[in-house]
Amino acid sequence: MRGRSASPYLFLAFPVAILTVFTVGPTLLGLALGFFDWSGSGPARFVGLGNYRSLVHDSRFWPALRNTLVFVLLSVPPSVLAGFLLATIVQARWFVGRTLVRTALFLPTVVSIIAVGVVWRWLLDSAGGLLPRAIVGVGFERSPDFLQGGPIASWLPWLSWPMVSLIVIQVWRTAGYCMVLYLAALSGVNESLYEAAEVDGATRVGVLRNVTWPEVAPMTAFLMVTGVIGGLQVFDIVWAMTSATETDSTVTLNLYIFREFQQSRLGYSAAIGGVLFALTLVTTMLQLRVMRRNAA
């Protein structure tokens, strides 16, 4: 409708106001705040790059950054790959119980991780959790401390047992979501491609790798990028599993941001937010580049 009317302005006034007041405005101010020292009341003091310079020497920041990156790198690719493989099986004509499986696998996406986290914590808790007991029960001398332990091996100082637990739970939680999205993508693949590959004598694995996988590449890119962005901002699950026993081996960027906020070190909190913002931006730009290449 190209007629002149006030309607679009009326329809958009409230949405634009909300997005401006609660998202765009606060983001710009938040990025600016990273260059100030402020406790939330009284005047803010401009410190330039002071906060960022402090970050470099902050013994808490580096573990938080490292843990966040480890979490992203070790949780996103496995859940995307698991989702792909599950989808290729579930989508096959001979598969029985598709709806049931889809419901079960999607459940962790829907249910509050705060509630499910309690069950996981009970499973993993060193004082009476099922898994540590099972490990001792089958004859091991002692079980790793899944929620508070140190590095899993002396040559892997950057990977602690609690991080492994968080990563496993994240994969558990997101694999079904990836599967459901791959199912949607697979239903759009042209059957004749498979038939052509078969005529050419391709093996099952060959079809999977050379036909299916390339066909769903846009979905893979989407899941990877949204997974990385979500992983960079991870909070709920970390809070649910480790807020009671927080250490340097479990702290993530987002948790550190929140802790600094609670301590009324708002400028510092915002500066860490700036780092998170930069990481998100880089990911988004990579996404745009990948999408453009796919479109070409």
Binding site: M1, R2, P8, Y9, L33, S269, G273
Partner: peptide
């Protein structure tokens, strides 16, 4: 379904909010 002045600006405002992490905006929100 409408053409109006400032449409592109509004569209990009909307799009940009999808990638702004809440951890940056929550203090002033």
């Amino acid at each position: 379904k409408f053409r109006f002045r400032g449409q592109r600006a509004v569209f990009w405002l909307v799009m940009s909010t999808m990638m702004l992490p809440v951890q940056v905006s929550f203090i002033f929100a």
